[in-house]
Amino acid sequence: MTPAELSRTVLRAVRRAVDDGELDAAVCAAGEERIVVERSRAGGQGDYATNVALQLARPAGRPPRQVAEILSRRLGDCPGVAEVAVTGPGFLNFRMAESASGTLVTEILRAGDRYGFAEADAPTGQVVQLHAPHEVRALVVMDSVARLLRAQGVLVGTSCVECPRPEWADVLGVRVDEIGGPEADADIRPVPAPADPLPLGRDAARWALLHPAGHDRPRIGDAYEEHLAQRETNPLFRVRYAHARTRALTRSAADLGFTAAPGEVAGEEDLVAALGDHPRILRAAAQQHAPDRLARHLVGVADSFMASLHPAVLPQGEEKPSAAHRARLALAEAVGTVLAGGLTLLGIDAPEHL
């Protein structure tokens, strides 16, 4: 069960509790918003947790822990959930069944580059107008924010006080819908770029402008070589290299006569957790207008993959391909899918060879 599926499962449990009279009907309206399920933090219990009971306590007219106990009884026997526990003032904690990683990988590979996107048949109906000053970083950030919002089912319009410079459009892929200053829902105003990013080319320039948080000053003028370096000190290189390695593993496995088959992969809990957290990161980056959150997440996924999974995917020496190798290959392909989809939302290419 993926975090998105677990979120929907919790919402169904809330509705059933209301239908059976255990919770007040007002809870339904409060629970209609997306229920956030997150990976358990350090010191937490289980694989995932949600604070939905604290969110629903007021409309339910009950203490949060009592709401959590009501929901836990309805969630303990759900497929894919091995155990539900209530901790603290009313947090619901979930330990997933052993096949959780295989289920997640299957979901990622099925969705492809759209993993973490809003469901195509469930648009939000929300309309957002973004506006940016005539400044290169603001326009690149606005472009990426628009991509993120559209991926979450939001209808987005963009505007700028004047036409972007031709080279910004040609090199960096910046496009705006309107010129002028229409009433906007959000002004995109990150700290301006301290130097011209165009010498870096599209991919490195966009990364240099998007990877730092909006309130941080990007390093460009004194760091051209750093952003173009093909080495581990360059986070964009690490992300793109990890993606290219996942594709190379698929080609090498085909040469060895085996293909991917999702299944349980031992020892990769952190990597699986990062992949499962991807939809939440996309939602947060869109809602907070913060593509830097996605950029940092991709670096974390890439680093985790290269450090632990990458060396163990292919058989070594005279070793024959096994179910474990096929499961690890499927997990590697899921990593590649997440990295490619995330880079695309940042407006950056994900090459298969690097």
Rank of each mutant, 00 (worst) to 15 (best):
Q129Y: 05
L109A: 10
R114S: 14
S99Y: 02
V105K: 01
R95G: 05
Q129V: 10
L109D: 07
A120Q: 10
V84D: 04
G80L: 15
P79Q: 11
L109Q: 06
N93T: 10
G88R: 08
N93C: 14
L92R: 06
R114Y: 02
T124V: 12
V81E: 08
V86F: 05
S101T: 13
A100F: 14
T87V: 14
E98M: 08
T103K: 05
R95K: 08
A97M: 14
A82Q: 14
T124W: 12
V81P: 02
Q129W: 09
G125V: 11
L109W: 07
V86A: 09
H131M: 13
T106M: 13
P123M: 09
T124K: 03
F91K: 03
A97H: 06
H131D: 12
A85T: 14
A111K: 06
E107S: 13
V81K: 01
G90E: 13
Q129I: 05
L104Y: 00
T87Y: 00
E98Q: 11
I108T: 05
R110G: 09
G90Q: 04
D113V: 15
R95H: 02
V127Q: 14
F94P: 03
Y115I: 13
L92F: 06
G88K: 04
F117K: 00
Q126I: 15
G90S: 01
L104H: 02
R114N: 10
T124Q: 09
S101K: 01
S101N: 02
F91M: 12
A118I: 07
E98P: 06
N93L: 13
V84W: 03
L92V: 09
H131N: 08
L130N: 03
A85I: 10
S101Q: 12
P89H: 01
E83C: 07
N93G: 08
G80P: 02
V86P: 00
L92N: 00
G102R: 03
D121P: 02
H131C: 10
A85E: 11
V84F: 07
R114P: 00
G112H: 03
F91W: 10
E83T: 13
V128S: 03
A132P: 05
D113H: 08
V105A: 11
Q126H: 09
A82S: 08
A82E: 14
E107C: 12
G102H: 01
L109R: 06
L92T: 06
V86Q: 05
D121S: 10
F117D: 15
Q129C: 04
Y115Q: 09
F117R: 01
